[in-house]
Design a protein around this nucleic acid. Sequence first.
DNA 1: CCGGAGCAATAGGTTTTTTCAATCGTTCTA
DNA 2: TAGAACGATTGAAAAAACCTATTGCTCCGG
Lengths: 307, 307
Amino acid sequence: MIDKLEYLMALARERHFGRAAEACGVTQPTLSAGIKQLEAQLGVLLVQRGSRFIGFTPEGERTLDWARRILADSRTLQEEMRALKSGLAGQLRIAAIPTALAMVAELTTPYRLRHPEVRFTIFSMTSIQILTALENLEIDAGITYLDNEPLGRVNMVPLYRERYCLLTSAEAALGNRDSVTWAEVSRVPLCLLTPDMQNRRIIESLLRAAGGEPRPMLESNSMIVLFAHVRTGQWASVMPEKLAETLGLTETIRAIPITEPEAVHTIGLVVPPREPMTPLAAALVAEARRIGSDLNIEARKQTESGV
Amino acid sequence: MIDKLEYLMALARERHFGRAAEACGVTQPTLSAGIKQLEAQLGVLLVQRGSRFIGFTPEGERTLDWARRILADSRTLQEEMRALKSGLAGQLRIAAIPTALAMVAELTTPYRLRHPEVRFTIFSMTSIQILTALENLEIDAGITYLDNEPLGRVNMVPLYRERYCLLTSAEAALGNRDSVTWAEVSRVPLCLLTPDMQNRRIIESLLRAAGGEPRPMLESNSMIVLFAHVRTGQWASVMPEKLAETLGLTETIRAIPITEPEAVHTIGLVVPPREPMTPLAAALVAEARRIGSDLNIEARKQTESGV
DNA sequence: CCGGAGCAATAGGTTTTTTCAATCGTTCTA
DNA sequence: TAGAACGATTGAAAAAACCTATTGCTCCGG
């Protein structure tokens, strides 16, 4: 029965019998028959049949909810047993929003020191994709904004606060400044993430609040692309401080803090709200708490010294 | 995999491969092989092997916890689908402590009016048995004391309050009284439930508190046996008011309220703390709340008029 | 110390289930 | 109207699940 629920989940993900079958490592007739069996066992139609995949019936949607739960539990069971036998080992799938990609290393590196047998897969996703992927058990944890747009039901661990910089050549218009305002930035032609990214939406709203109208000269869903363009000295972009540092500043490229207002958003780890967590996920949360509390202490120190 | 988890649960219940197999409707080698497969799949030993069944390994115990969850969820899924298809139907297994057996009808009767297709199985169990049976998914709900001895993790719905009467012949020592004290009762030879019953322990502690030493002349785990003896006119017993009423009083048998102190214990419905509940269990809880609130209102009225 | 009873594991054979390759029927599109 | 895409169907082969019968072990009673 558990296999059949896997089929159903795959079908929900792929919305296509053939691809779902491939994802499950079986042929299309096998998956087709599996779904049929599930329908027979439950005595209800789960999939709306037509010449092609249309969607699920209400019963099918409800069954999917249960499948998520049951599969999550059965995977946790399996992983827990493996952890008991041979220590923490296995695969940890983490998705992060592009602006947080560089900081994933701060999480994975100490994790790996504690648990050398764990392998990682890191995905770059939009914050919305992260939430659905968490739901569908495609990833174990996500790194995304905690405080901007509504999250689903997840457990959160704050990691750090994102402050924004103008990344530009020292020879460019604002290149010699020590700080700039959002109003000034709004007049610079920028390279920005695509609008499906939350970071883009945040920056747009900040620019608009400062009275400007965002008109990016170049869009990409990859921070690498943006940085590569800035690096030529001919383009400018807005990036989180942390990311700019990681990507490395040269003599000619400067990261200039943007003030007025100093916009801050919290980035953190999100995991499914299931109790108990898989051992791998639990260890990741522990790691995140360490980093998070470090940064909180840091932030507090800064605040105190600032006063 | 789900079948294998069923095997494991049955083995935990029966503590015997053969009987567990029979309970699952398979032969002993099949169940044996099933457990082996589960062990292979999880990569750990689950059962302590010896010449006979000894017990589970720590990993086995942990796996049992998960099995309970996973099986409960998968059953809820199946039942929910059946409820969607053909309305509320199926089997509802309820266990009650002996003193509450008579009141089960107050729950099942209105339930049946609302949902005529649901069939019931009622077990008489001790309060401790009820809790383990709930854990092991052998019953869907229990009726037991809510306030005396510690319950496990369950959701509770109060149903009524148990007040105690001396049940005795009108010609016997205290037979002509309108009320008696626990101290007086402690000097009467009684028929009581066996000591594994919580009711017996409650009554014993009340008798001891009144300075007496309980010396029951006859013990049974069946209230019917106790009542049958009292009915001869030659024996006496202590019973909850509600039960005495249901069993029927004759001219010669009287139920005399016991006061000083007026001991009251709450009896209620207990269900596993799983969210969401099966449709059948949810309907039972709804019914219990109706009865419970009725009685609460009644109790309040009594209190008010008493003041 | 021996023999029988009770219990779980194993062996061997049968049935059932699962799976896949090939094909079909339908629907949408160019 | 031909072709492509998609899911259902079919039939044969492979895998598995299951059962009966048996074995091997341990514990007890004599």
